[in-house]
């Protein structure tokens, strides 16, 4: 889950273009983390030192670890430890960007430091992606609200990201949410969730994106914007809201009611209540979630 937030960080800070990021996101599952990248991340070596070893490697047929030890940058124990590290997936994104030549080791080093301090993540956090850290990332991500997110809102967003990973794929980047008063629709479905936390949820995307989204969701290849594709968009939203209501019931003892999903026919939606637009970039296109907060007791 870190890779998606790290991707947003890179994009919003102008480090990468959307195209570069999408390419790296797609690639990250097949990327191999290099020892140098791990050493920079662990703070054992500077980018400069890693670059020196890489230059040495062009002259000597030796492994990176071997050279780093003989040059005195790493101990053998550190090499062993780095090789055992459970790879943080945001580092895989960094490695993919390195491999693509979008950033260099020095840039990666400063990005890791800035990103970690901005989000108060420390070294040991990566091995266990605790809920607390993800919640903090979600909170920082939603700075637009200018208030702390309620626990219900946090649960909702956290689950949404998990469901995207689970049902559509982890190669997405959430872009910064913004307050939204009006929204011109593409193909848009909505569903109201009612109870002590009431929210109207919208999922919108162009027809071509719907086709790709549905193909992943159903795990079948669709090639036209047919009724199954349309139903997939509703189905995902309904599934997410259903799982959210299960979580709310289990965690907070709150019972929520779901209304039947609705296809929005108007070309322009206007929102009376506080509403947020959350665009999510996938390689196949951008999908748009909107949350209209109707009432909450949290």
């Amino acid at each position: 889950m870190y890779a998606q937030f790290f991707g947003n960080y890179l994009l919003s800070h102008g480090v990468v273009t959307k195209e570069q990021l999408v390419h790296a996101m797609q690639k990250k599952s097949s990327v191999h983390l290099k020892l140098g990248t791990l050493a920079i991340h662990a703070g054992y070596m500077t980018a400069n030192e890693v670059d020196q070893i890489i230059i040495l490697q062009t002259h000597q047929d030796k492994r990176f670890g071997e050279l780093a030890v003989s040059e005195g940058y790493l101990t053998q124990a550190q090499v062993t430890e780095l090789l055992k590290i459970q790879n943080a997936d945001f580092l895989l994104l960094g490695q993919a960007l390195l491999d693509d030549g979008v950033i260099d080791n020095e840039r990666l080093q400063s990005l890791i430091i800035d990103y970690q301090s901005e989000n108060e993540i420390c070294e040991s956090d990566y091995s266990n992606e605790t809920r607390e850290i993800i919640d903090r990332l979600v909170e920082n991500f939603f700075v637009v609200t200018e208030r702390a997110l309620s626990r219900y809102e946090l649960s909702f967003i956290h689950l949404l990201f998990n469901n995207l990973v689970r049902f559509i794929g982890d190669d997405f980047t959430p872009t910064c949410p913004c307050l939204c008063q009006e929204y011109p629709t593409n193909y848009c479905v909505s569903q109201k969730v009612e109870g002590r936390f009431s929210i109207r949820t919208y999922l919108d995307m162009p027809e071509s994106t719907c086709i790709a989204f549905a193909s992943r969701y159903v795990d079948e290849t669709f090639d036209s914007f047919d009724e199954y594709v349309q139903a997939s968009i509703e189905d995902f939203l309904n599934l997410h809201n259903g799982l959210f209501s299960v979580n709310m019931s289990n965690e907070y003892g709150i019972e929520l009611q779901l209304e039947v999903p609705n296809i929005e026919t108007s070309e322009l939606l206007t929102f009376e209540k506080e509403s947020y637009l959350l665009p999510i970039i996938y390689p196949f296109g951008t999908i748009y979630f909107i949350f209209e907060l109707l009432a909450t007791d949290a």
Binding site: N238, N241, G242, S245, V246, S249, E255
Partner: peptide
């Protein structure tokens, strides 16, 4: 068969 499998 429902997406809302709460106890209630």
């Amino acid at each position: 068969v429902s997406s809302v499998g709460t106890q209630s």
